[in-house]
Design a protein around this nucleic acid. Sequence first.
DNA 1: ACCATATGCAAGTATCCACTTGCATGTCAA
DNA 2: TTGACATGCAAGTGGATACTTGCATATGGT
Lengths: 94, 94
Amino acid sequence: MVDVFKALADETRRVILDELAERDEQTLFELCARLASKHGLASSRQAISQHLEVLEEAGLVRTEKRGRYKFHFLDTSPLEEIRSRWPARPAKEQ
Amino acid sequence: MVDVFKALADETRRVILDELAERDEQTLFELCARLASKHGLASSRQAISQHLEVLEEAGLVRTEKRGRYKFHFLDTSPLEEIRSRWPARPAKEQ
DNA sequence: ACCATATGCAAGTATCCACTTGCATGTCAA
DNA sequence: TTGACATGCAAGTGGATACTTGCATATGGT
């Protein structure tokens, strides 16, 4: 298991989440193509695959295998921990 | 500069934020003492000092020097990026 | 069956990062 | 001023991690 914070520590993984937020249910190959063209991401298939594993272990990505394709889905629910752990407080007026 | 996500990637730094959320305006020594006793944190002064630098560079901690003391304040506003970047979406009913 | 496609696995490498160690600087109290 | 206290600085070390490389597995189309 990987904690959500560590999963979010890498910018490539954050861009992957951005891309899945824009278009859910993508295969590894789709993601590679769209990340390269739309986000200027020059990562290899293996690199992205490993990032997806980390995201899945952190619960931020859910997957579903159909035939030889594996589809990836965004799951934002683990972000709730971050949203609630340090509640927004009124800024100290100086 | 350190990005907010990287700053949050370390559990020790997250506990420091917890402690500052509970009691704001602490010196390095106060933080060391309270982290050790209340959070079971066994980190050295230098380690915590370096963590505070990272948190400050990420904008999560603000500091104020008075005499030989340096006080640390929590600033949760950088968390807004995380709150808003991947908005909560309705879970896909399966 | 065959081949192209889509993905998985695992070892190696290079960089990053948390932590230590040792010393330096600066402030207050007597 | 002297000494104790609070913090700062910087080089070194071990472990984690992002990425590569090369091969393996599996599915579908013809």
